[in-house]
Nucleic acid binder design. Structure first.
Lengths: 267, 267
DNA sequence: TCAAAAGTGTTATAGGTACACCCATGT
DNA sequence: ACATGGGTGTACCTATAACACTTTTGA
């Protein structure tokens, strides 16, 4: 079978499923030439399209938030939503997540991880769009998100008290929070949220916040001592009205040796 | 902004990215009317398409295999590949996985779980196709896969000794094996591979095979005793030339109570 | 000297590892 | 009676959880 035959097979399948030839667009010829594009349904251009939605969790001093934009465009205009958009045909998924994030929120250099893909047929009111969810964990104070492109507002929203979201974004958010909790135990994504030199109290508060769970100070520290990739420094806090805390730092090479696929932070 | 305006925006974006109007298809008008479809590139119909690839792991008595088909069609004709195909526009992802599996392998009633999505721009030689991977674990002896549709052969392949696979299927397979190993610890997918009444030796061999790791008999059993959702029956093996083994069964309700997101089989 | 938070130590209990040993069955 | 694999028990060690205690700083 040649490439030409293959193409023919694809068209045959298309016809079988859609009960029509994919030339429906021909009927729009005159309107397109007159630049009258308004009446052409989206689905004629994206028979099936894919998008990326970014679930950006923001952490700061014991508070976990999520970055939402207000949609300035239909559908779901004026609804709060995850920053997300269609993937360009010539763009890798990961790159797309970063580009979309930059377009809508002005954020750059974010370390995103793919989680789940959502593909319910009716999840987008204007056509078939499947969406790949990406999560990231960032320190809110390090960043200044600015709404741009079709995003009309942007805001860090406290989890547990969220407005009604566009599309199935609530489902995506909930699922991604679960994924974040798994990720933070196995991947060093938490390093993006702490300063290079951090105290164990900072580390504990971070894990308590993300995992929504309290830990005993002594036991937490005992566990840390067993982790070779957390290196104690000869430096400590200054000018605090209590015993100064010793700084630690993350040792990436040591981490790479140790990790073998399982949870590293087994908390 | 109305739906019409929204459609216009989409088109504008399309033009910006592709440096052309999406009316390229008009140039094929005469060929289409003459039913001469061979020369039309697939990408004109699926500007971007999505597919599903099924990684079906087959288990039987201490052996783990993966179900592959030989492609009877271009591209990668005569290569071994994961059973996978394009998703229909009106089909949910999960349903698509089951349909594709049935089309290519004749298998039905398989419990598949979504894992990772692969979207490299050049992963499909004939156009942009992103693919969602699904995994399943089945007992090879329960099923008789039969190659159909464009699959020319079908075979259970031993892991660790695989032929060169089509597309990026080797990468998908490797990543999905990792996912299977995580899944089997947290979800009761292993129940599909054992008879309803099974012995602890059977269970241990299964976990050893999938996780590629040996366990101590006594310690394995001690752990099992702590799992309320594994119920000891008053029944045992018959006609074996050694002490007969006691049967156990899986208690789904008890399992649902216990599981709280983390690994249940912490092996 | 006191408040505040860092940091250590102690205990009882649970769980893990390695191994030896006994048990029930068919031949 | 013995080979075979099922099944249990023990001893040692290491985690875990809860809690009390000591240390270092600025005010």
């Amino acid at each position: 079978m040649t490439k030409r035959e293959y193409a023919f097979n694809i068209v045959a399948t298309f016809v079988k499923i859609n009960k029509q030839m994919p030339v429906k667009m021909l009927t729009y010829r005159s309107r397109i030439q007159q630049d009258d594009l308004y009446s052409i349904p989206i689905s004629d251009f994206f028979q099936s399209a894919f998008s990326v939605d970014c679930v950006i969790f923001g952490y700061h001093e014991g508070e976990l938030k999520v970055l939402l934009i207000e949609r300035g465009t239909e559908p779901y205009k004026n609804f709060w939503a995850l920053p997300g958009d269609l993937v360009y045909p010539n763009e890798d998924l990961n790159a797309s997540a970063l580009r979309i994030l930059k377009d809508l929120t002005s954020l750059t250099h974010i370390d995103v991880k793919q989680v789940h893909t959502f593909g319910r047929v009716d999840r987008h009111p204007l056509g078939r769009v499947i969406t790949v969810a990406y999560v990231a964990l960032v320190e809110t104070q390090d960043l200044v998100p600015v709404a741009s492109s079709w995003a009309s507002k942007i805001k860090w929203h406290t989890l547990y008290r969220l407005p009604k979201l566009a599309f199935d974004h609530r489902e995506i958010l909930d699922s991604s929070l679960d994924d974040l909790r798994k990720l933070i135990k196995s991947e060093p994504i938490w390093t993006k949220v702490l300063p290079e030199k951090f105290t164990l109290t900072q580390l504990q508060l971070l894990f308590e916040t993300v995992l929504n769970k309290q830990f005993d100070k002594g036991n937490f520290r005992k566990k840390i001592r067993g982790m070779k990739f957390l290196k104690k420094l000869n430096e400590s806090e200054k000018s605090v009205a209590h015993r100064p805390s010793i700084y630690y730092k993350f040792d990436q090479p040591k981490f790479n040796e140790q990790k073998d696929g399982d949870y590293v932070f087994d908390l």
